[in-house]
Nucleic acid binder design. Structure first.
Length: 907
RNA sequence: GCACGGGUAGCUCAGUGGUAGAGCGGCUGUUUUACACGCAGUUGGUCAGGGGUUCAAAUCCCUUCCCGUGUACCA
């Protein structure tokens, strides 16, 4: 090998025969991940003058392990980041993890239950428990970060953040204090979604309305003053009857008009309760009478408020009945109590009927049990900058892709409700509010606490604890995890970093967290930084299994990405996934596709290996280019454009597709197969130089273009092909994209067009010849002779390439060739092509073949003639289209004539 | 209920008015010196159904059906 070896990226000469035939990704990938990091390739400098590109990672839960959704999401971010580096930008991809209050706390609590004897966090105590969670986080919390590194993510790991880092915690508190002072954060007694397993309030977004099979019970309520009159009430929750304080009917319902103002006897925990009239009750549903249970239903609560009704709470925090007045039910679990109460009513003869019924039940996203509407003292946030958030997306300051998600976003913002931000958890940011000692119990009951209470000195709200802590007691609650996540795009950055990299460029995330995260970040960005947090939001598809089901642990249908990386390589996984990732819809995951990614890596490796087996090109004699060289360079130039366009539209599947098809089909199958003889011994050195330099040009450009998707193998080949040393002496990932305008710069457009047409004709001709061979059952590798009766001038070079492509020993170009009777013939763009089969001629077979082809052509001709004989078409279609159709018809007719002539020669 | 997305070859998906495509799979041939993770050939389609607009519809409009997602709820 005559490679020039110098610099630290040099490659030691290796005997090419020792290069393994198959690409083995594992070691290569580990090596480059290590080297990139050692050399600080991922580090973002906040002080350069370069244009910036920045992304903040959607922080995975610190309890998380990598799943396919993460792979999709982070591969896309990595592609964007790597491509931006190639374009000369200063790139920050900021990584980190989320403390995930509920998930992480639950994780450690689970460990406690495994102890003997089992313990709960209450046995441990708040301070020690929080210490335990921190310890767990230090030991197990980094798993997903390691996994992201294995995927090749080029995050600036020096800037890794955690949502409970000290600096971050300060930001969270600062924001709380500011919003409190502004009056947007307040504490109030409200109906909230209560999780009876986790014993905390949840936001509306954390409740999933799920259709469930329930029962609708119709129950008899006796009128107080008439033992023979009954009011029938339908309910799905008989276990809350003891908390009924009224029965409501629609004021327009004639059936009950005379009952208004009277009382019925509550059938359990008996007591008279009024019959009231409320518009809210639908006449047509059930019996038209609705039991009002303000403590256990949101709507009933509002009715209760309107009518000044009493609130009777008969459920404990963990979902058990608390009603000593009804000893049969007191202390029973809520669902057990439901059946039991129905039974009790039946025994009393008060259960009119019981029917199967499907209704929507709110399920806790976290604990998977039905939530309870519960009256509870919680902290709420009235969202800031709602209008700015709407405007930004409406006027295009922030672009959603796919665009239709903007509708979902707007809809949510239109109906936005105050956010319940307090959680009865220990792991998380504790609410920075302190109550004056001695007043604590009084304040606990206060209907609403707000900024005036701080002014009155009853409470203290501050980033720092009060200076006289002995006089204060801190609020017990922690903040919703999303109350820290919504600050992620700026709270992760110091002042310099913010100055350079905020607002960020792109956000890549799943549409399932538009409300949880995306919308809230936008509002926070405007409120606290006075600017949008990002310019583009790319919503990835949701990865599903082949049956279309969401991937989940319980279904066991979620492949382990690390296992996939092991078997197919990170590059294979990335490429395979990008190839099937559609824009705008779900992606059905098929492992076969990942295998394709691996196969593609192998193809690339072998194409590079082929190059390494050749010597070096030399400057003399001057390279003699032929049409196939020019053709592949023109296609390469096209690929540059295609990729830039697809990336601009975030069409990653189109990128992968274009890269795949260029390399496999155009470069390997056509170009390389056409030029192999140029590299054999005895070939014209000028042609050899043209071929080698073309190969190098293509590979050099191609590795750069592919690098963002398959960073490891391209980096490896960049080095081992010697390009690192030759083009800039830097790793590929820090090398700028080569300039595609320099390709073919010395040639006129017309020359290029002619060369491409010639190459295309050559490939088509080869194709026809291969068909002929196959139809005559001649093995691919069977050396045959071709004769070409040229329709255009054929250079010897071209004839040679044709023979090579077809697997023929030669192509004779003979203007006056007369084929023996029955010789298989094809009409090709280069002329009539014969496949003389000395002694093997099968006249009948050739006749059949021609007849078959004629049949096909006849159909096309009919189609075309029908079209052209339609006057409307000729008159109304654009002239261009008509001409095109006419040309097609001429072509078909010409072919037909030719085939008929051949047929005649056979008879 | 409302909104959004989707229905194209056995499978996964491209295809924004002008000759229905790719990869995989199937079948046939092939160990030719980069690659059998390969090469060559080939087989697969009422573009969900119906109607409309148009010279021309997978593509635009209407409608029905099916799948998915979000959202609102009636106890």
């Amino acid at each position: 090998m005559g490679l020039q070896m110098r610099g630290r990226y040099d490659m030691m000469p290796r005997a090419m025969r020792e290069l393994p035939k198959a690409y083995e990704p594992t070691q290569v990938e580990e090596k480059w991940q290590r080297r990139w990091q050692e050399e600080g390739c991922f580090h973002a400098d906040a002080h350069t003058a370069k244009p910036t590109y920045s992304i903040v990672i959607p922080p995975p839960n610190v309890t998380g392990v990598l799943h396919m959704g993460h792979v999709l999401n982070n591969t896309i971010q990595d592609i964007l980041a790597r491509r931006a580096r190639q374009e000369g930008k200063e790139v920050l991809w900021l990584p980190g993890t989320d403390h995930a209050g509920i998930a992480t706390q639950a994780r450690v609590e689970k460990e406690l239950t495994k102890e003997t004897p089992p313990r709960t966090r209450f046995d441990v105590g708040r301070e020690d428990f929080v210490k335990m969670v921190w310890a767990w986080k230090e030991e197990h919390g980094g798993i997903i970060i390691k996994q992201l590194k294995k995927l090749g993510c080029s995050c600036d790991w020096e800037r890794e953040r955690f949502t409970m880092d000290p600096g971050y915690a300060t930001e969270v508190a600062r924001v709380f204090v500011e919003l409190f002072r502004e009056g947007l954060i307040y504490r109030g007694l409200r109906m909230v979604n209560w999780d009876p397993v986790l014993l905390t309030a949840l936001s509306d977004e954390e409740v999933i309305m799920t259709p469930s099979k329930s029962k609708l019970y119709t129950i008899r309520y006796r009128l107080e003053d008439d033992p023979n009159r009954w009011l029938l009430v339908a309910t799905t929750r008989p276990e809350t009857i003891m908390a009924d304080v009224a029965v409501a009917v629609n004021p327009k319902d004639p059936r009950y008009a005379d009952m208004l103002g009277k009382k019925v006897i509550r059938p359990l925990c008996e007591a008279p309760i009024p019959i009231i009239a409320d518009e809210h009750v639908e006449i047509g549903f059930g019996t038209g009478a609705l039991k009002i249970t303000p403590a256990h239903d949101r709507v009933d609560f509002e009715v209760g408020v309107r009518f000044g009704l009493q609130i009777i709470d008969v459920l404990t925090a963990d979902g058990h009945i608390n009603c000593p007045g009804c000893p049969e039910l007191h202390g029973k679990e809520r669902f057990e109590a439901r059946d039991l109460s129905a039974e009790l009513l039946r025994q009393k003869g008060l259960l009119e009927k019981e029917e199967a019924y499907e209704n929507n039940v709110g399920i806790s996203q976290r604990s998977d049990v039905p939530i309870e509407p519960r009256l509870s003292m919680q902290w709420f946030l009235k969202y800031p900058c709602v209008q700015e958030a709407k405007d930004a997306v409406a006027n295009g300051d922030i672009v959603f892709r796919p665009a239709h998600w903007a509708k979902t976003y707007m809809h949510w913002l239109d109906g936005i409700q105050d956010w319940c931000i307090s959680r009865q958890l220990w792991w998380g940011h504790r609410i920075p509010v302190w109550y004056r000692k001695g007043m604590a119990s009084e304040l606990k009951e206060a209907a609403k606490l707000d900024v005036t209470d701080a002014n009155a000195g009853r409470i203290y709200v501050g980033v720092e604890p009060p200076t006289d802590p002995e006089n204060w007691v801190q609020d017990e609650d922690a903040l919703d995890t999303w109350f820290s996540s919504w600050l992620w795009p700026f709270a992760t950055m110091d002042a310099d970093c913010r100055a350079k990299f905020y607002p960020t460029s792109d956000l890549v995330t799943g549409p399932d967290i538009i409300f949880f995260w995306v919308s809230r970040m936008i509002m926070a960005g405007y409120r606290f930084e006075g600017a949008k947090p990002f310019s583009n939001v790319f919503f990835t598809s949701i990865v599903r299994d082949l049956q279309g089901r969401k991937m989940s642990k319980s279904l066991g249908n979620s492949p382990d990405p690390l296992d996939l990386i092991e078997r197919y390589g990170a590059d294979g996984l990335r490429f395979g996934l990008m190839r099937i990732a559609p824009t705008g819809t779900d992606v059905k995951f098929d492992e076969k596709q990942i295998e394709e990614g691996k196969n593609f890596a192998n193809k690339l490796y072998n194409a590079a290996r082929f190059r390494m087996m050749q010597g070096e090109a030399s400057s003399s004699p001057a390279p003699k280019f032929s049409p196939v060289h020019i053709d592949i360079l023109a296609k390469l130039k096209q690929l540059h454009t295609q990729l830039a366009n697809a990336l601009g539209k975030y069409e990653f599947n189109a990128c992968a597709q274009a890269l795949y098809s260029f390399f496999w089909n155009e470069y390997c199958s056509l170009f390389l197969e056409a030029v192999k003889n140029d590299l054999r011994e005895g070939a014209d050195p000028a042609v050899r130089n043209a071929t080698l330099s073309t190969i190098d040009t293509v590979l050099r450009h191609y590795l750069s273009l592919l690098a963002p998707i398959m960073p490891h193998i391209t980096e490896e080949l960049w080095e081992s092909l010697g390009y690192a040393a030759r083009y800039g002496g830097k790793p590929l990932m820090l090398t700028e994209l080569p300039d595609d305008t320099a390709l073919l710069s010395g040639l006129e457009d017309s020359e290029i067009a002619l060369a491409c047409a010639t190459a295309t004709a050559l490939y088509e001709t080869a194709n026809r010849a291969r068909n002929l061979k196959a139809e005559y059952n001649l093995a691919t590798n069977k050396n045959v002779r071709l004769v070409l009766k040229p329709a255009v001038p054929i250079e010897a070079d071209l004839a040679g390439r044709l023979a090579l492509l077809v697997g023929a020993k030669e192509t004779d170009v003979e203007q006056d060739y007369t084929a023996p009777r029955g010789t298989p013939t094809a009409l090709t763009p280069l002329g009539e092509l014969f496949l003389p089969l000395e002694g093997l001629v099968d006249v009948q077979a050739e006749r059949d073949r021609i007849a078959k082809e004629l049949l096909q052509i006849a159909k096309e001709i009919v189609k075309s003639e029908t079209k052209l004989s339609n006057p409307s078409f000729v008159q109304r279609a654009p002239a261009e289209v008509v001409q095109q159709e006419q040309a097609r018809l001429r072509d078909w007719n010409e072919k037909k004539q030719h085939l008929i002539a051949m047929q005649a020669a056979l008879s």
